[in-house]
């Protein structure tokens, strides 16, 4: 019934088959099919990531409702400046990543490599700042576990801070559990992303991605932006909501 349509499709296919670009993998008929499959696969993967983080966001939502005061107090101990700088760093890294994709599209190898390296640098900067923040939490005994102390919340040294009743102060541990679980999982995604970026740089230096086939770069860009967006949700939820100073 739709044989004419099929015939034209096949005509195209055969024309393509003769001009096999090296990057067209054998099991795809056309470059377009390969590109679409890769991008669709990436979006599906990001969907699984949404579900992965979703579990923790759900927990955050519930506990924030139950232990509002503890969440406010916990949130106030975070360093908003470091958080803001990190947000800026991450947004910049998204920009450089987007520029990397653009460079690949324009087939500019040098600028592609530059932007990828810039992205790595910004990613590392983010992790570095995060490490500083984590170290501070260790010093203040705000890491959940045996060394956790509620002293800071019951008798705050900061005059602006609201003192919590001891039972509510205990619940800041739930806040910090989620803080470390969420930012930790996010940082893990950053580390994985940076590792992949390193591979991409090496391959880009060898001339890959700037010869018309750039779906790897494009899809990695999606991943990087996704990790960025997760932070865009984490930042207000963990740092900004109900701040009093």
């Amino acid at each position: 019934m739709d044989s004419p349509a099929i015939a034209t499709v096949n005509g195209e296919m055969q024309a393509e088959a003769h001009a096999h670009p090296a990057y067209l993998r054998h099991h795809f008929e056309t470059v377009e099919q390969q590109r679409e499959a890769a991008s669709f696969g990436m979006w599906l993967f990001l969907l699984t990531e949404v579900m992965f983080f979703g579990g923790m966001f759900m927990a955050y939502l519930i506990y924030r409702n139950w232990y509002h005061a503890a969440f406010v107090a916990g949130s106030n101990t975070l360093n908003i400046w470091l958080g803001t700088i990190n947000t800026a760093v991450l947004i910049c890294s998204s920009f450089t990543m987007a520029m990397a994709v653009y460079s690949a599209e324009k087939r500019r190898r040098k600028s592609l490599v530059t932007y990828l390296i810039l992205t790595i640098v910004l990613g590392l900067a983010f992790l570095g700042i995060k490490a500083v923040e984590y170290a501070e939490k260790f010093e203040l005994h705000q890491v959940p576990g045996a060394s956790f102390s509620i002293e800071q919340f019951v008798h705050p040294t900061d005059p602006k801070a609201v003192a919590l009743a001891p039972d509510m102060a205990e619940k800041t541990q739930v806040y910090f559990s989620l803080y470390f679980a969420m930012t930790g999982m996010h940082a893990l995604h950053m580390i994985i992303g940076i590792s992949i970026l390193l591979i991409l740089v090496v391959r880009a230096l060898g001339g890959a991605y700037t010869e018309g086939h750039m779906s790897t770069i494009e899809n990695f860009g999606l991943y990087w932006h996704f990790v960025d967006i997760v932070w865009i949700f984490l930042f207000p939820l963990l740092y900004l909501i109900s701040r009093y100073r």
């Binding site: 232990y67 959940p144 576990g145 956790f148």
Partner: peptide, 11 residues
């Protein structure tokens, strides 16, 4: 490490 998301003694 003893986080407390599911631990009733920690809330």
């Amino acid at each position: 490490i003893g986080i407390g998301v599911f631990d009733p003694t920690k809330g």
